[in-house]
């Protein structure tokens, strides 16, 4: 299966950023806050793609590290400072550290075993969030104050402002993911995906490559978590449930694994389907709608949303995907 990092024209990217930034002027406050949450989820999905699509390590743990970032930011907000930049730093660091500690053992496995180990990690983090009282247990973490950008600054209460913060974090995280993908590490990650044995045969330890990728992805997911907390001011264990992990992974496949931007769009499609389309028009049938989207995507978009984009340009005939 030939994967290409989707090439985006800079003008198109700029236009997209401008449109995204204009959202608070175009929509009412509830859709805007939904947009903020979509951006946070999309960043989690991008981090999932960094592992799944770029490194060939499908994972179900990213939502766990997202949760670590979200809860950390919430705890910082309640007990220490409402400064969003501090929360971002702490959340990213905490998630990255946990990714390091868990990754050291998890990355020793591969394939479906690795998938199940990451499932276990995600679920264990979920259970911890559900049970620990100082995290609010099953009621979730409440009482998180509105964030500020600088000491003594105005708290960001309006949905539009928190949305812009979420957009900023999203763009930052996406940029980091892109920079990594274009770096020598990114090349090593793609080599691990294509043939770990070959990579070892040229003298490179695949374990180290995968571990570094795992840590970076975990940190990005943590950053996404802090954006989520800034937007919602509430973290619930339900946000870390297995179903969310599954949706994150499926968003990657829907969007086109390996392209980074495709999965971001896939994330938006999934989140909108579940939290807007189903919630407003087909209450209680979110699963049905999502299921239909997924099944259609498998047959109509063999290389995901991003793949569909690519195939409309002139593609060399041999780069067909093994659908």
């Amino acid at each position: 299966m030939t994967r290409r990092t989707g090439r985006l024209r800079p003008a198109g990217v700029l236009l997209l950023v401008v449109i995204l930034a204009a959202v608070p002027f175009l929509l009412a406050s509830y859709p805007v806050s939904l947009g903020g949450r979509i951006l946070a989820f999309a960043l989690v999905v991008v981090s999932t793609d960094l592992l799944t699509g770029v490194t060939g390590m499908p994972t179900l743990a990213q939502v766990g590290y997202f949760g670590v970032g979200a809860y950390s930011a919430g705890l910082v907000g309640i007990h220490w400072t409402d400064n969003l930049i501090v929360q971002l730093a702490v959340g990213t660091l905490a998630a990255g550290l946990l990714a390091l500690v868990t990754g050291v053992v998890a990355v020793r496995t591969a394939g479906i075993v690795f998938l199940m180990v990451t499932l276990a990690i995600g679920e264990l983090i979920h259970q911890v969030a559900d049970r620990l009282d100082f995290l609010g247990a099953s009621n979730g973490l409440v009482g998180i104050p509105a964030g500020t950008l600088y000491p003594g600054g105005e708290p960001l209460i309006l949905a539009g402002y928190t949305y812009w913060w979420a957009l900023l974090v999203f763009l930052l995280g996406l940029t980091v993911a892109y920079v990594v993908a274009k770096s020598p590490l990114g090349l090593s990650m793609r080599a691990v995906r294509e043939s770990p044995t070959r990579l070892r045969a040229v003298g490179q330890s695949t374990y180290v490559v995968r571990l570094v990728a795992f840590i970076i992805a975990g940190a990005i997911a943590g950053a996404a978590g802090t954006a989520w907390t800034a937007q919602t001011r509430f973290v619930s264990p339900g946000d870390l449930a297995f179903s969310v992990s599954a949706l994150a992974l499926l968003s990657v496949v829907l969007g086109g694994a390996g392209t980074l931007w495709g999965p971001a769009i896939g994330a938006a499609v999934v989140f909108l389907t579940r939290d807007w389309l189903a919630a407003n028009y087909f209450t209680g049938h979110a699963d049905l709608l999502l299921g239909i989207v997924f099944v259609l995507a498998v047959f109509l978009l063999p290389r995901g949303i991003a793949g569909y984009q690519l195939s409309r340009r002139s593609d060399p005939p041999h780069s067909g995907a093994a659908a």
């Binding site: 499926l250 049905l288 999502l290 299921g291 995507a297 659908a323």
Partner: peptide
């Protein structure tokens, strides 16, 4: 592809 099998079978399961 495993991932696309997952997408397909989970989609069917959800429906």
């Amino acid at each position: 592809d495993h991932l696309r099998q997952a997408l397909l079978t989970l989609g069917i399961a959800m429906i």
